[in-house]
Design a protein around this nucleic acid. Structure first.
Lengths: 247, 247
DNA sequence: CGCAACTTTGAGGGCACTCAATGTTGGTGG
DNA sequence: CCACCAACATTGAGTGCCCTCAAAGTTGCG
């Protein structure tokens, strides 16, 4: 019954390649054939591990690489001049972190591991060269960056138009669909982040998040014990997430 | 003079090229030398004009082109499923619209002209081919898209952390710096958008925007007569914009 | 001149925040 | 094994910023 995070869970992927990675259908290799993938393999710096709370990169530090999450989870955040943090995104396995930094030689945000996390480091100068040679990769990079813009716009909508309940429902559904993508249960999973992070990300106070969770639970929408979450009524959550600004 | 003079004659740039465009130091040509620029010229569809309120492209319509603003101004917005609009950005001359749509074959947002606006249309399939041939352009495209992500994150910060006054100060300063980039007065300009649009963009009610404008005016920070705006105290606005969450 | 769109100003209420305190969890060392 | 602490989470009471509702004032255009 070791509920603790199992350390021994690393499959034999120390000699791993993109071709054998279980995330190849989500990550960059998605756009590549086998021979192209081996080109990518050559530049990827694998097996970088970060413990919970450790920083993958920091705001204003030199920008050299993007990072693909292999296991665990990462949050990115911006520190405002007045000193407080705003989380701009959560990144799960198969997702690429650092795309907001490609417009400068220093990072636009800070990335921290939410739990023990392994990543693939992809040096940008080599990535750009590779992109130049592989049209499929170019297209995919545009795709990813565009999606990042879209996600961020979606977040803006959430922040400016929706109530606390709607925001939290939307976040739960977003996580759900990302677990589904990975062939994991979309209705029963562990939150990688603390209530505090959820609150920060959604522009709410921690107390509000807590209250909404219990309210959802009383309504039979979810079952929550700490970070262990079960979505009991996806439809109701979807209805709630898209808001009800009826005329 | 046998030839009748058309009233709607454009200045002598009907045969215009990027090389002679006054915005070449802001727009895509920024990254290109002369010979490369002529390659770009070949694919650009110039002189598309939109009147105030006209739609440049619509959400869920097929995605074929990006648009560079030549004169005028454009707003992009997303329509939520519950029917209300969220403006995601304002685009001024020299800026590129539509980058959030490159992850799909339909547009992620709607773009409308805020005033009479001329744009250069850039078909994406040809753009992607060109990018593949011109490494400088590739780098620049990454730069632009990354910046778009960053802008959007900045907006999220604004929406979730700042008060109405702070948000409006930040918007005024953003506009100011963009006018400065174009060698126009950074302290005296015409707002391209209505109060309504400002409110929507910043996640506020129109009434709140109006109240803050008059408050700023009473404090001597700005002078506003309709859309005619003069920034009287840039420093004070900057202090206000970065919020005051002192510990 | 008159309508439509836009802007400003006022009054009152609500959602989420702040402040405050208690409950819970997980890791550490006795 | 259990006590203990720090971090995290929940719950309650009261307040404030901004929204909603309502109406008057202003601008622009046919």
């Amino acid at each position: 019954m070791t509920q603790s995070i199992s350390v021994r869970q690393q499959p034999a992927i120390s000699k791993a390649s993109c071709q054998h990675c279980s995330l190849s259908n989500l990550c960059l290799p998605l756009a590549l054939d086998n021979s192209e993938m081996s080109r990518l393999d050559e530049v990827v710096n694998r097996d970088r591990i970060f413990n919970r709370g450790e920083q993958v990169f920091g705001q204003s530090t030199p920008f050299r690489s993007c990072f693909a999450v292999k296991s665990g989870a990462i949050k990115t955040s911006m520190i405002t001049e007045s000193g407080d943090e705003q989380i701009t995104g959560f990144f799960m396995p198969g997702e690429l972190v650092g795309l907001d930094s490609m417009s400068d030689d220093h990072h636009a945000s800070t990335a921290k591991a939410l739990e023990r996390t392994s990543v693939c480091e992809i040096p940008v100068d080599q990535l750009e060269q590779l992109v130049h040679v592989l049209p499929g990769l170019q297209h995919h990079m545009f795709h990813l960056m565009s999606q990042e813009i879209r996600n961020s716009h979606q977040l803006s909508v959430l922040l400016s138009k929706n109530t606390a309940e709607e925001r939290i429902a939307a976040l739960l559904l977003s996580l759900s669909s990302r677990f589904r993508r990975r062939k994991l249960s979309p209705t029963h999973f562990n939150l990688p982040m603390a209530r505090n992070d959820i609150a920060n990300f959604l522009g709410l106070a921690v107390e509000t998040v807590s209250r909404v969770f219990t309210r959802f639970q009383n309504q039979g929408l979810i079952r929550a014990r700490g970070r262990d979450i079960e979505l009991l009524d996806l439809e109701a959550l979807q209805v709630m997430a898209q808001g009800t600004s009826q005329p």
